[in-house]
Design a protein around this nucleic acid. Structure first.
Lengths: 333, 333
DNA sequence: AAATTTCTTGACAACGTTGTCATTTACTGT
DNA sequence: ACAGTAAATGACAACGTTGTCAAGAAATTT
C-alpha cells in the first residue's frame, strides 16, 4: 500500500479526495507515491462505506436489434461523463423472467438508478420493490402513469411530417404506416390529421396504407408492392409520408421502378432519421428524427437532479422530433 | 437485516450461497425471510471480500456512431448472461485523454477484464499498468502483437466476395472500395486478387474505384457518381463488389438511374450485412457479413476460459465473414 | 451409558474506504 | 520562553461479505 509513504491510511484518503488541510509537502510526496503505484481508489469499498454509487443501470428490452436504442445509450453516456458516472447495461431480450433477474442484478450492484429503455414507444410496467423513484422510463411510459418517463412527441412528429408537405403545396399525400399496434402509429396518425384539418385539406383514407405486415417482432416489409400500386393509380399522390426511413427506402425503389424520380416527380419524407439510411439514400432523405440521444441524455439529467425533484414534478416528458431537411422533397408548382 | 430470523449472519450467508450443510428447517425458514425482505447480496461487499468481480468492462472508441460495434456488445452480452456476469460500458469517443480516464474508471471498479472494441479493423495500442492479460481486443489488434485479439478475416471476406461472382461466370467485375487507410480495404483487396488469380481471370485496375472520399471520420460518399460513370462505359461491368452495404445502396440508385435493374442487368454484392440496409434494399442484398456478434461473444469466452489459457495460446483469432445469399446477384448466362 | 463421530451453527477477522474524534505538531502573540 | 490557538495527522469503527476455526448439538458406535 501507498502507506509505505510513511503516512497513515487516513492521510492518503484525504489526499485522494482533495480533502481539507494537508501539508503541502506531505501531499506532494504522497501524490508521487500514489501515481508511481498507479493507485486508483476502490469503488466497491467507497460504495460500502458511503452507500453512494456512481453507477447507473440501463436496461433495454433488446439491445439494438434495430439501431434505435443505441442512441439512448449514447445520450445517457454523454450526460454521465460530465458527472463522472458509469453505465451498467443489460438487455432482457424481451424476456420477462430475465428482466426480473436483471432487476436483482442491478440491485446487487446497488446502482444509483435505472433507466429502462424500450425499443419502441409503448406502455410498459416495470419495477422492483428495492427501487422506488430511482427508475426512469425512456421511450416508454408506465401504464398507471406512476413513473417519470421521457418519450418522443409522436403526435407532433406526424403533424410535422404532414405540415411540411402541405405547406409546400402538396394535396394528394400518400401515407405508408407501420403496424397499427404501435403507439407511434396511432399518435402520428392523429398528428397528420390535425395538420390536414388545419390546412383545410380533406383526408383521403384510400391513400393511407400499411407498409408492414405481420405481428410485432416478426414484421415483413411490403412497402415496395404497396407503394408501387399506389403510384400506379390514375391520380397518384405527389408526396408520400413514411412511418420510418426503411419504408422510405423502399418507396425510393418503387418510384425508380416506375420511372418516377425523387424529388422531381415524388416527394418523400421519412421518420426516425436512421443515419445509415437517411444520409445514404440518393437523394438524401428529408425526415423527422426520433430524438433518442436527447431522451437518453434527459433521463440521466433527471436522475442526477437534486432529489429527483424534476422527475416528480413532470411525470411525463415529451421530446420534440426535429425535422431534418435534406433533398427528397420539393414544393409542388 | 434478515438476521432477525434468529440465526447468525454466517448462516444466512451459507444459505444465500447454497453452502454446505445447513439444517433443512433452518434453511427453509431463513429463505422465507430472505425473499420477504427482497434480499439481494451486495456485490460490492463480495468483491471486497473475495476480490472476484463479475463485471467486465467494455470500452469502445465510439459507441455506435455507426451501428457496427453494437453487435459486439450484443455478442458479449450473450456470453455474459450464461455466466451471470455484467457489462460496464463506456466510450472514449476516440479521445485519448478520455480513454486514459476510462482505464482508471474500470480499474476503480476492479472489473474482471476489459474488452476494447474498435469501430473498425485497425491497429491500436491499449493498456493500463493495472491490467495485464485481462484485456482483449475486439476488431482491432495490438501493434506489437502482444495482446490477444479477435478480428474479422477481411482477406477471406474479399476472397469470398470475388469468388462468389467469379463462380457465377462474371468476368468484368467492378469494385467500389472504402478509403485505403483502413486495414479492411487492403486485406479485402488482397483476397479479391487471390480469387481472380485462382480463377485465372485478369484483374482490371480500371474497374476498381474509390466510393468514399475524404479523411477517416469525415468521409463523403461519392459512390453514386463513381458507379454511374463506370456503368456508363462502353463495356460496363456485369457485377460490382462493394466495400460496405452503404455503398451497395448507392450502386442500386446509380443502376436505377441508368435503367439497369438488379440483378438482371447487374449483380451487386455488399459487405458488413447492415441488416437495416441489406434486408430493406429491393431486391434484398447478397452480402458478406462482418461477424461482430461472434467477435463479441468470443472475447468474453476467452476471458472466462480458465486462466486465459486460450487467450495466450492464440494471440490473434480470425473470425470468418460468412456470405449471406439474398437476391442481388445472378449468374451470367 | 460413555465415547466417538458427524451435523449444525456462530464468533471473528479482513477486504478498502471515510466520518468522527483524538492526538500530535506547528505556529501565534506576549 | 510559554501559554494558547491553529494546523496536520492518526486511531478506530463501520459498511456487508465469507473463509477459518471452534464450539455446541445430535446421531452413531461400542
Amino acid at each position: 500500500m501507498a502507506k509505505r509513504a510513511g503516512v497513515s491510511i487516513k492521510t492518503v484518503s484525504r489526499i485522494v479526495n482533495n480533502d481539507a488541510a494537508v501539508n503541502a509537502k506531505t501531499r506532494e510526496s504522497v501524490q508521487r507515491h500514489l501515481s508511481s503505484l498507479n493507485y486508483v481508489p476502490n469503488h466497491a469499498a467507497r460504495l460500502m462505506r458511503n452507500g453512494v454509487s456512481s453507477v447507473y443501470g440501463l436496461m433495454t428490452d433488446a439491445v439494438a436489434t434495430t439501431p434505435y436504442s443505441v442512441d439512448i445509450v449514447r445520450g445517457a453516456q454523454s450526460a454521465l461523463v460530465e458527472a463522472n458516472q458509469t453505465l451498467l447495461i443489460a438487455s432482457s431480450d424481451g424476456n420477462a423472467e430475465r428482466e426480473a433477474e436483471l432487476w436483482s442484478t442491478f440491485n446487487a450492484h446497488r446502482v444509483a438508478g435505472v433507466i429502462y429503455a424500450s425499443m419502441f414507444h409503448r406502455a410498459h410496467e416495470v419495477g422492483h420493490p428495492n427501487f422506488k423513484n430511482s427508475i426512469i422510463l425512456a421511450n416508454c411510459f408506465a401504464p398507471k402513469n406512476d413513473r417519470p418517463c421521457i418519450i418522443p412527441d409522436d403526435e407532433m412528429g406526424g403533424y410535422t411530417q404532414a405540415k411540411y408537405l402541405l405547406q409546400r403545396g402538396h394535396r394528394r399525400i400518400g401515407i405508408v404506416t407501420l403496424i397499427p399496434e404501435l403507439s407511434a402509429t396511432r399518435l402520428r396518425g392523429q398528428g397528420m390529421r390535425r395538420a390536414f384539418a388545419e390546412a383545410g385539406v380533406g383526408f383521403d383514407d384510400a391513400l393511407e396504407l400499411r407498409g408492414v405486415n405481420g405481428a410485432l417482432g416478426s414484421e415483413i416489409l411490403v412497402t415496395y408492392d404497396v407503394t408501387r400500386e399506389m403510384l400506379s393509380r390514375p391520380n397518384r399522390p405527389t408526396a408520400i409520408i413514411c412511418g420510418t426511413d426503411q419504408l422510405a427506402m423502399q418507396v425510393y425503389f418503387a418510384a425508380a421502378n416506375l420511372g418516377l424520380s425523387i424529388p422531381e416527380h415524388l416527394s418523400v419524407i421519412g421518420f426516425d432519421d436512421l443515419k445509415l439510411i437517411s444520409e445514404t439514400l440518393y437523394p438524401q432523405l428529408t425526415t423527422v428524427a426520433l430524438p433518442y440521444f436527447e431522451i437518453g441524455r434527459r433521463a440521466v439529467e433527471i436522475m442526477n437532479s437534486p432529489d429527483n425533484e424534476a422527475a416528480l414534478s413532470s411525470q411525463r416528458q415529451l421530446v420534440l422530433c426535429p425535422l431534418l431537411e435534406r433533398h427528397s422533397c420539393k414544393p409542388l408548382e
